[in-house]
């Protein structure tokens, strides 16, 4: 398969094989991380481990530093205290090999859907060096992914010709086309209507089960968090602190029916109560 041919050389794979005998080290590790903007403490003593291939969601009241957490993990912001590791290496600057998607799809308006999704392949090795010589193979790779998210027939459209939901699908594709180890999602579905949103939960879960990346989803939608994540973290008001860690025991793949499962409903209600408590404890 194409993905195997394009994978990185033997050494990283070898180390993964060697480490399978021990419990695999976390993909993301935060130890006592805090961040101050001037005098204001935005995030305080955040400690968490995210396993390789785990999908976590971070929920909390708005302005609690969820997005800050994301910027810290990817090295876009340096922490003012504590340590962050990604892929067993200390994070000192913007990390390589992560994908990102935001609420705003930020597709480039002069590029077609295919070319927009192609963007990371023009920048990230090993694809970058092939992008001239073997463009056809990369286009096939993009087309495959577009097919999976249901955009197969929209590859040659410009962003303004797509609906909001379709733009967000293309945005997801762009975030994972280069097969990153880590996918960061900052409220990617917040601006979509309820039906489109639940469609995209499905799309995202399919992509995750297909590529097995590690995922961090920042959201204020509890139903979304519980539906998608293996583990949900609840954060407090500013200064943001991680208050609860909640494992979601629901089977995969989760389906729209899952949302009527009593276990699902119970977890969502429980989380809602916790967040309400956080908000009232001002």
């Amino acid at each position: 398969m194409l993905t195997h041919k394009l994978a990185t050389p033997v050494y990283p794979e070898l180390s993964t094989i060697l480490s399978t005998s021990k419990p695999s080290p976390p993909m993301v590790r935060m130890a006592g991380v805090s961040l101050k903007y001037g005098d204001m403490l935005a995030l305080e003593d955040a400690t968490l481990d995210i396993a390789d291939g785990e999908f976590v969601a971070v929920v909390g009241p708005s302005g609690c530093g969820k997005s800050t957490l994301m910027k810290l993990v990817t090295g876009l912001l340096p922490p003012t205290g504590g340590d962050i590791e990604f892929d067993r290496k200390r994070v000192t600057g913007p990390v390589r090999g992560a994908g990102m998607a935001f609420q705003n799809a930020t597709l480039l308006p002069w590029r077609t859907t295919t070319d927009n999704v192609m963007l990371p392949l023009e920048i990230v090795e090993p694809y970058k060096s092939q992008s001239r010589s073997n463009r056809k193979a990369l286009e096939d790779k993009v087309q495959n992914l577009l097919d999976i998210v249901g955009l197969g027939d929209f590859g040659d459209r410009l962003p303004w010709q797509l609906s909001g939901g379709m733009q967000q699908r293309a945005n997801l594709c762009r975030a994972i086309i280069h097969e990153p180890k880590l996918l960061m999602l900052d409220e990617p579905f917040a601006a979509l209507d309820a039906f489109t949103k639940e469609d995209l939960w499905q799309v995202l879960q399919d992509l995750w089960m297909h590529q097995k990346f590690t995922g961090i989803l920042v959201t204020h939608d509890l139903r979304e968090a519980v539906y998608l994540a293996d583990t949900v973290y609840v954060m407090s008001n500013r200064p943001g602190r991680i208050l609860h860690r909640c494992h979601i025991p629901l089977d995969r793949p989760r389906r729209p029916e899952t949302t009527f499962d009593p276990v699902y409903t119970e977890i969502v209600n429980d989380l809602r109560a916790k967040i309400a408590a956080v908000r009232n404890a001002k």
Partner: peptide, 27 residues
């Protein structure tokens, strides 16, 4: 250029020249 787009490009490891040529200048 949207700050989100800048973040996306920095995480991809784009050089300043790539950012300029592929995103900022067309924009």
């Amino acid at each position: 250029v949207e700050p989100e787009m800048r973040d996306v490009l920095r995480i991809l490891g784009a050089t300043r020249y790539e950012m300029l040529r592929k995103v900022s200048f067309p924009r």
